[in-house]
């Protein structure tokens, strides 16, 4: 076997990819070839180094957090996905064409009720991904459902077959207390899906005013605020979300959100806010929190804003001196 092929076997041996015969050939070769033995040792050192330098550990908390955020995203996805075209598709299964208009009327009613259920029906705290919030004490008034955003996916062909998409919108007026579970769920939904940033800022403020009064805020509200903090396109909304979150007791989830903000936020003002909050609420209690120190260190080394680097350095050094 050529030396090059044996070098390849060296790599594969380290990956535990050799069969018994190949391993035996390699073992024999290693006994007589100093160069390959040295190469194997280098590869083993590289492997050790890479394992030591591994940054992210998958913890149960991280998995739980990912699942919580997925639940919120799936709820939003579900409400977007619910399209009347699915109902039209089902009409094709209806046996008597003459009865279709009546079925359309019935289907409209069902969809209206279904949408109402989707947003307002009761749920339980241990429900699954598709869990639906409770109405609670809020007064709900639904107005006439209408179609908007209509467009043809496929115009009518010679057989009359057609495919359309549209939004099925029911204006709803809701009155209640911001502490009410159903109001909070709607606000959380609006925070993620509302197009108008002004409305999103007011939504965050409303949620923020509620978290002050609540001893144990809903995990979904918290997840929605964190999602807004991390991914909303408007810096004002992100700032409001940060303010709202920091009214809650700082736990690991909030700490991680702050660290994410410090690492990924494009607005330097918000990065400074994150440093200040970490300094005040996390390092005050646990001055040697390694996660925080690592991110601060990274910021003071790599941030593209002078003030952020200096602020991170000051806090980092202050903690080191304690």
């Amino acid at each position: 076997m050529k030396h090059e092929q044996l070098q390849e076997l060296l790599h594969l041996s380290l990956y535990h990819e050799l069969d018994d015969d190949q391993q035996s050939i390699l073992d024999q070769h290693l006994k007589v070839c100093a160069e390959c033995s040295a190469e194997l040792k280098k590869l083993e050192r590289l492997d050790t180094l890479l394992q030591k330098g591994r940054r992210v550990e998958i913890t149960d908390e991280l998995l739980d957090e990912a699942r919580r955020e997925l639940r919120v995203a799936l709820r939003l996805e579900q409400s977007r996905r619910f399209s009347f075209s699915e109902w039209l598709d089902r009409l094709n299964l209806f046996p008597a064409p003459g009865l279709r208009p009546a079925f359309v009327g019935a289907a409209t009613l069902v969809v209206g009720v279904g949408l109402g259920y989707l947003v307002f029906s009761p749920g339980t705290s241990d429900s699954g991904i598709g869990a639906i919030p409770a109405v609670g004490q809020a007064v709900v008034e639904r107005n006439e459902t209408r179609v908007s955003g209509f467009r043809f996916v496929q115009p009518p062909d010679e057989t009359g077959s057609v495919e359309v998409v549209f939004d099925f919108v029911t204006p709803v007026r809701m009155k209640g207390n911001v502490a009410d579970n159903s109001i909070q769920r709607v606000l959380a939904q609006a925070l993620i899906s509302e197009q108008n940033p002004g409305a999103r800022i007011r939504t965050v403020s409303a949620l923020g005013s509620q978290v002050l009064t609540s001893k144990k805020p809903d995990a979904d509200i918290k997840a929605a605020l964190i999602q807004a903090l991390k991914s909303d396109g408007n810096a004002g909304v992100r700032k409001e979300a940060l303010k709202a979150l920091l009214k809650l007791p700082v736990d690991k989830v909030i700490k991680d959100a702050l660290l994410y903000l410090l690492s990924h936020e494009s607005n330097p003002g918000l990065r400074v806010d994150a440093i200040n909050y970490l300094d005040r609420y996390v390092l005050d209690d646990t001055p040697h929190d390694q996660d925080v120190l690592n991110v601060l260190k990274e910021r003071m080394q790599t941030d593209n804003n002078n003030y952020v680097r200096i602020r991170a350095k000051n806090v980092y050094e202050e903690v080191q001196q304690q």
Partner: peptide, 20 residues
């Protein structure tokens, strides 16, 4: 995802995108 991006936050983004 976490091993690829070496960041728990980016890994969660990928996780969410995958299941969506």
């Amino acid at each position: 995802a976490a091993r690829y991006v070496q960041s728990s936050e980016d890994a969660k983004d990928i996780y969410q995108e995958v299941f969506l």
